[in-house]
Design a protein around this nucleic acid. Sequence first.
RNA 1: CGGGGCGUAGCGCAGUCUGGCAGCGCGCCUGCUUUGGGAGCAGGAAGUCGGCGGUUCAAAUCCGCCCGCCCCGACCA
Length: 437
Amino acid sequence: MAKAPQNAISPTREEDYAEWYQQVVRAADMAETSPVRGCMVIKPWGYAFWENIQKNMDAMFKATGHSNAYFPLFIPKSYLEKEAEHVEGFAKECAVVTHHRLEAGPDGGLVPAGELEEPLIVRPTSETIIGALYAKWVQSYRDLPILINQWANVVRWELRTRLFLRTAEFLWQEGHTAHETEKEAWEETKLMLEVYREFVEDYLAMPVLTGSKTPNQRFPGAVETLCIEAMMQDRKALQAGTSHFLGQNFAKASGIIYQSREGKEEHAWTTSWGTSTRLIGGAIMTHGDDDGMIMPPRLAPNHVVILPIYRKDEEREASLAYAEGIAADLRKMDSPWGGKVQVLVDKRDMNAGEKGWEWVKKGMPVRVEVGPRDIEKNAVFVARRDKGPTETYGQGRDEFIQALPGVLKEMQDGLYAKALAFRQQHTRDIDDLGEFT
RNA sequence: CGGGGCGUAGCGCAGUCUGGCAGCGCGCCUGCUUUGGGAGCAGGAAGUCGGCGGUUCAAAUCCGCCCGCCCCGACCA
């Protein structure tokens, strides 16, 4: 039997944090770089995680009165020019479309042709185009508020990219609301920050600090930017979500004007708020260890993987049947957060040790091995991803099934508590900026 | 965009200084044996050595230009 290395991931967090991060993304098979510079390919395991983020966050948006819509990928250049600070903030990182077809060139290649009268910008964010539409939609105070979110991709031509944390194209949601009064818009800004805080803490198990950005770090064009910040294991902060109070800046730039109850023309008050696939990077850097990813159970693509163990063909059938039986019973169990327990039976015919490590690296919350010895005892062999690799234990089959929802809950809470303890350990108060180093 | 590093098989690399048959490990394919902590044996496939040009009998190796990637910094969801 070959000797196993100490950790699945090399280097360790201690040795080289940036490289560790890249290795985890790769070992967990969540994403990889693409032929297009700065853009990533999100692979099924990473995308399934994102889908769960979307599904659950979207439910919170709906619960707070928002609806989804979709606006165009392209923004006319002139729209971006309407808000001075906004232009300055984004102009340097925009992809620009100047032509609308390709023609055969002299040396066999294709050359752009059909120059556009007005260049189109690939949206870096959608305030300006959505503002233009809201201007049409809003006539009266009765048309307000507008509470819309969109799930989309945006492009910011970043000079230095890292998978999930900062890519040239990324997936996100952007909420855009318009209100009758300043007070309402402010309440919306704070409400959505609270939604983000709740989601990131309760679902992703990442403790965050809320606050407002300095004028320098404020969203270009915003009056105020609120944010949630989480501490990563390199003790650096990661901005995990922002909620902007835009005042009347964009309403003025886009002409979002309504007739008030008093019959006067007024500019609307707007907000925007966003979170992105960066949340995935944050979860990796918050929970991951030197064996790879640790998925927060509440958003994990699956809660449990069952690995049938066998030597001979007869054993194979028995193990598979036993595994499927457990899976069927597990799927009847309620997950602690609504819905049922999500179970995967990994039937692939490969070395059991290697198969097990694959799931360790992917961060599957619970791993269960079932083989002839377990069948005999009507038992299972359990490994929790939040425990050390040797802290595995045997358990009666039915006992395991009944206990599982509680175990998932315990893991979720444990991940949060651990991250919070880490943050507290590495936090100290300072009284003036001079102490900040 | 500033500083540093690197481009050789899918991945990780040696070979470059000192020019002379394209190599190693992992992975992949086939077969058998295996499978409860990362498999073993045997056989096999796979490379315009980042690109273009130059020097030379001969270039992965020397020279010039270009392209790309990674890390640190600044900037950002």
